[in-house]
Design a protein around this nucleic acid. Structure first.
Lengths: 216, 216
DNA sequence: GTTTTTTAATCAATCGATTGATTAATTTTG
DNA sequence: CAAAATTAATCAATCGATTGATTAAAAAAC
């Protein structure tokens, strides 16, 4: 038996977390049994309760691992002293980068909030997502106030930005066939689809949002 | 006990289906037990297997009830002899009307295809959705060919249209707080949000898609 | 009186969780 | 340093509860 030092213990928890993230995305929370989660991670079933208290605790640990720090980056961009249009582009690129890097995680959280039933888990998720959304919203509203953007429906602009990536990331079976790309290959997705989404979002926002009238 | 005539038998199946649609949207497929489904519908648990064979059969019946006929309407619009821009607007309005009317159903199907794991259910769903998507795609491509639309990334345009409604309908906990509306009230959603989505999608497509250059 | 519908009871299988026992690693003691 | 005591980690086995499904019998319908 290998020696399990303090360093290796954290490795093990991290290992279980990363496997669980994939399995939850693959089968859903209810569909992923603790036995299957343990088997996939190559650990005894009791280890899940030993390290995370419960299956619910494991799920929350998976969520918290990714949510921490997400908002700070967006707020940083929001407070940059650059033109609104550049600011919005940077925020969108940052958001898309993070989403595409951890697409399993984003499938999980939107799957959970798609349920009507309220729970502390769903509340925790939607609270955090809403904070990120509001950072984006602030940037757009700022651009409208300083005349860079037209007077558009701000909430709908946000919904269309998030929705576009949401559709592509959360329904891979459909979007991969629409975009004719195999999303099983992580590399293809990160290098090609990400650029394609960014290019499209930039272009349609430029056409719809930017105020080209120098009068205003 | 009430008399159950032949007419009433179909009513009962339909009653179970409509309740199941709501419960599946609320709790997910795995989260909704046959006992709970039966209790909500006010019938004995064995009735689900008697009428639908299995829980899986009930789910498939819920799906097939709505999917049938969806595509035909879109193809009808596609074959109208009107300008591409009018055609696209009609198709989008038709699609949004159907989605908002049956939002429980749409939450169910996208929840199922958000799982990576392939299944006959997920395949059945994505096959049918893709046919509807291709009808929309044909309309946009036709508009590009006849010069009405600019040479845009067609697949991304579709993804943004579907994604916008997808985000609003499938994550009600988030979108209701973003849009400051309570989606529990079906009437408010159908009469207000639907118009708002339509207005927005029309406007941004007009800005991005329409070819205002009379040369082309 | 035969068929269809409905019910309560029950089935094997699986769920998440916990148990007591065992092993490995660390700390304390002399 | 070495022996003893303590803590941490892991395991197989099993817990009660719940799952989807089935049954035989009763009730209703025709």
């Amino acid at each position: 038996m290998r020696v399990m030092t303090e360093k290796n213990k954290e490795d093990k928890k991290e290992h279980i977390l990363s496997i669980a993230e994939k399995v939850f995305a693959e089968l859903g929370y209810e569909g992923a049994s603790t036995r299957h989660l343990a088997q996939e991670a190559g650990v005894n079933m009791a280890m899940i309760n030993y390290y995370f208290g419960s299956k619910d605790g494991l799920m929350k640990a998976v969520l918290e691992r990714r949510i921490t720090g997400m908002r700070n980056s967006l707020v940083e961009v929001k407070e940059l002293n650059i033109p609104s249009w550049e600011k919005l582009k940077q925020a969108i690129d940052l958001y898309l980068d993070r989403v595409m890097e951890n697409n399993s995680f984003h499938r999980i959280i939107y799957r959970e909030v798609s349920l009507t039933q309220r729970s502390d888990m769903a509340d925790f998720i939607s609270d955090n997502i809403l904070k990120n959304i509001n950072a984006l919203k602030d940037i757009v509203e700022e651009g409208i106030q300083n005349g860079a953007f037209r007077h558009v429906d701000v909430e709908m602009v946000i919904a269309s930005i998030l929705g576009t990536k949401y559709f592509i990331v959360n329904s891979p079976q459909i979007s991969s066939r629409l975009l004719k790309k195999d999303f099983q290959d992580q590399d293809v997705m990160e290098k090609e689809i990400k650029l394609r989404i960014k290019k499209f979002v930039h272009e349609y926002l430029q056409a719809f949002l930017l105020n080209n009238d120098p009068q205003n």
